[in-house]
């Protein structure tokens, strides 16, 4: 089976993001960049499915030449080949989905696995847009019943269950109030939640091997997609700060404060 996964380049989720005082953007100095954590989970899931069912994992990323770093990271984890859509300017979710739809038409994967959200934009949209543009079924927020400390996880079993005839995938989803289960015909779009798996580390031999794996370069013009953003950011601001609190020495003081100061109990 062929699986397409995505690897967006984002600020390390542990970086401290600070807005410039003029609201034009964030300070870039000292920021580290990584593969979006949800996309790393997508890559891992693709690799587990390919290990179980045979096949290959193609990783795609849209961005300037620096996104090749994230593609190499996915290749080092074990992805077989990479597709880089070279576009340096701003992009919105509809634009990215339009490009990924064209990549899917070329690559014809059985499944496209994306992260549920990119931790920079926090939009949670591209997978759903992509499924719609392709006319495919979808299952967002894929999870699994077993914990990340379970034996199934230690055995690197995939959380997505492909049916015996290879025509559908069963997906457990994290939704409000519990877990939802869907059967989706293939080809399908799946987006990952954090509980789907614990991604592997790239091994040293993996990193060496990744250097010789192919990265195909495409462009929006070549794919025939107009990526002029329909969503533009006009301003950025810091969120309102909370006023500084205090440390209380003991439970009795805490209760007293909650009662007479905060008046919440």
């Amino acid at each position: 089976m062929k699986i397409l996964v995505t690897a967006k380049r984002v600020e390390d989720y542990e970086s401290k993001i600070k807005v410039k005082p003029d609201g034009s953007g964030i300070f870039l100095e000292g920021l580290k960049y990584k593969i979006n954590p949800f996309d790393e989970i997508a890559v891992e899931e693709g690799l587990r499915l390919a290990a179980k069912h045979g096949g290959e994992v193609v990783v795609a990323s849209v961005g300037g030449k620096e996104v090749q770093e994230q593609l190499r990271h996915a290749l080092a984890m074990g992805a077989h080949k990479a597709v880089w859509v070279n576009h340096a300017g701003p992009l919105d979710q509809l634009g990215v989905a339009g490009l990924l739809a064209k990549v899917c038409e070329q690559e014809k994967p059985d499944m496209a696995i994306l992260g549920k959200q990119a931790v920079d934009d926090d939009q949670n949209q591209v997978g759903q847009y992509l499924a719609e543009l392709l006319g495919w079924g979808m299952a967002t927020f894929a999870s699994k019943v077993e914990s990340l400390e379970s034996d199934a996880e230690k055995a690197k079993a995939p959380g997505l269950a492909v049916s015996a005839d290879g025509k559908a995938v069963r997906v457990v989803r994290e939704v409000d109030g519990g877990l939802d289960t869907l059967d989706v015909q293939l080809p399908a779009v799946v987006t990952t939640d954090l509980r789907l798996n614990q991604p592997r580390y790239a091994s040293l031999p993996g990193i060496m091997k990744a250097k010789s794996k192919p990265i195909a370069e495409l462009t929006p013009a070549g794919l025939g997609v107009d990526v002029t953003p329909k969503l533009t950011i006009t301003k950025m601001a810091a969120p309102p700060a909370r006023k500084a609190g205090i440390k209380v020495p003991d439970v009795a003081t805490l209760v007293e404060k909650l009662k007479s100061e905060a008046k919440v109990v």
């Binding site: 807005v19 926090d122 329909k230 301003k235 601001a237 969120p239």
Partner: peptide, 14 residues
């Protein structure tokens, strides 16, 4: 919100 609420962005949809 963007970046886990570290930034509040104003966006225009066209």
């Amino acid at each position: 919100p963007m970046w886990a609420g570290a930034v509040i962005a104003t966006v225009k949809l066209t």
